[in-house]
Computed example of a mutant assay.
Amino acid sequence: MGAKVIEGRVTADAGQGVVVFLIGMRVNKFRSPRDWWPVARAMPRMLKELARDRSGGLISARVLLGGPRLVYVVQYWESQEKLLAYAAAPDKEHRPAWAEFNRRVREGRDGVGFWHETYVVPAGSYESIYVNMPAFGLGAASGVVPVGRRGERAADRLAS
């Protein structure tokens, strides 16, 4: 079955802008699970915590595989401030997981790699199109509108 297909051409409707946060881990040494298993377990806990508290600012998240060694999450946030507040909150899952990861790195454990990238996207500074697709990516996070409402061409949507 799967998600409902939205027929025709639509585009994301992130009217207020959005923050795109990419975060992931790479298993460098499969035979060192004590290095990578704690990292692999931490992200689902954080995502569950954020899903329970919608006021925290996470709009949407999707876990993706980048091959046998790489797992990453594409996240859409309401604002840079809410993302940074979550990362710094002493009573949330992120801080202890980050402290534990850094402790392991200082000990010289290199069985796992970690990365993240943050993009602050102002309103109108994005372009997207979805043709005969279920809600996906930014469109799933923000909702979609008919393409004509933001412009028929990619250049038009970027200029809106």
Rank of each mutant, 00 (worst) to 15 (best):
Leu83Thr: 00
Lys82Asp: 03
Met133Phe: 15
Leu47Gln: 10
Tyr119Asp: 01
Glu127Val: 05
Arg106Ser: 09
Ala140Ser: 14
Glu49His: 15
Val131Glu: 11
Arg31Gly: 11
Arg103Gly: 03
Leu138Ile: 07
Val73Arg: 05
Pro90Thr: 03
Arg106Asp: 10
Glu127Leu: 03
Val20Cys: 00
Ala88Leu: 10
Glu100Trp: 06
Gly113Lys: 06
Trp115Ser: 11
Tyr119Val: 04
Pro90Leu: 07
Ser60Ala: 12
Val18Pro: 02
Gly148Leu: 08
Ala123Asn: 02
Ala123Val: 01
Ala135Val: 15
Gly143Cys: 10
Arg95Ser: 09
Lys29Pro: 07
Ser79Tyr: 00
Gln75Tyr: 03
Ser55Ala: 15
Arg103Trp: 00
Val105Lys: 06
Ile23Ala: 03
Leu65His: 11
Met43Arg: 07
Met43Lys: 08
Leu83Glu: 00
Leu70Met: 13
Ala135Cys: 14
Val20Gln: 00
Ser125Asp: 08
Trp77Lys: 00
Asp110Met: 10
Leu70Thr: 02
Asn132Ser: 08
Gly17Glu: 02
Glu78Asn: 04
Ala42Tyr: 02
Thr118Pro: 01
Leu50Arg: 11
Glu49Pro: 13
Tyr76Arg: 00
Glu127Lys: 08
Glu107Leu: 13
Ser55Met: 09
Asp13Leu: 08
Glu78Asp: 10
Leu22Phe: 03
Val74Cys: 04
Ala140Phe: 07
Arg149Met: 12
Leu84Thr: 14
Glu78Leu: 07
Arg9Ala: 13
Ile23His: 04
Arg109His: 07
Pro68Val: 02
Ala12Cys: 07
Ala97Thr: 00
Asn28Val: 03
Leu70Asn: 08
Ala51Trp: 05
Gly108Met: 08
Leu84His: 09
Asn102Trp: 01
Glu78Pro: 00
Arg109Thr: 13
Arg31Pro: 11
Val73Cys: 04
Lys48Gln: 14
Gly67Met: 06
Arg26Asn: 12
Ser79Val: 00
Val105Gln: 10
Pro33Phe: 12
Phe114Cys: 01
Leu47Val: 04
Arg149Glu: 14
Val63Glu: 10
Val147Pro: 06
Asn102Leu: 09
Asn132Pro: 03
Ser128Glu: 06
Leu50Asp: 08
Lys82Gln: 06
Arg109Ala: 01
Tyr130Leu: 09
Phe114Thr: 04
Tyr86Val: 02
Gln75Lys: 03
Leu47Asp: 05
Pro44Gly: 04
Gly67His: 12
Arg109Ser: 04
Val74Tyr: 01
Asp53Glu: 13
Gly17Ile: 02
Glu152Asn: 13
Arg69Pro: 13
Arg109Leu: 08
Glu7Pro: 15
Gly57Asp: 05
Gly67Thr: 07
Arg109Trp: 09
Ala89Gln: 09
Ala135Ile: 15
Asp35Val: 02
His116Met: 07
Gly66Lys: 11
Gly151Tyr: 10
Trp36His: 03
Ser55Gln: 10
Gly24Cys: 01
Gly57Met: 11
Met43Ala: 09
Val144Ile: 11
Asp53Tyr: 15
Pro146Arg: 04
Gly15Glu: 09
Trp37Phe: 06
Arg62Cys: 01
Asp35Gly: 05
Val18Ile: 14
Ser142Thr: 12
Thr118Arg: 00
Glu117Gly: 01
Val74Asp: 00
Val147Cys: 14
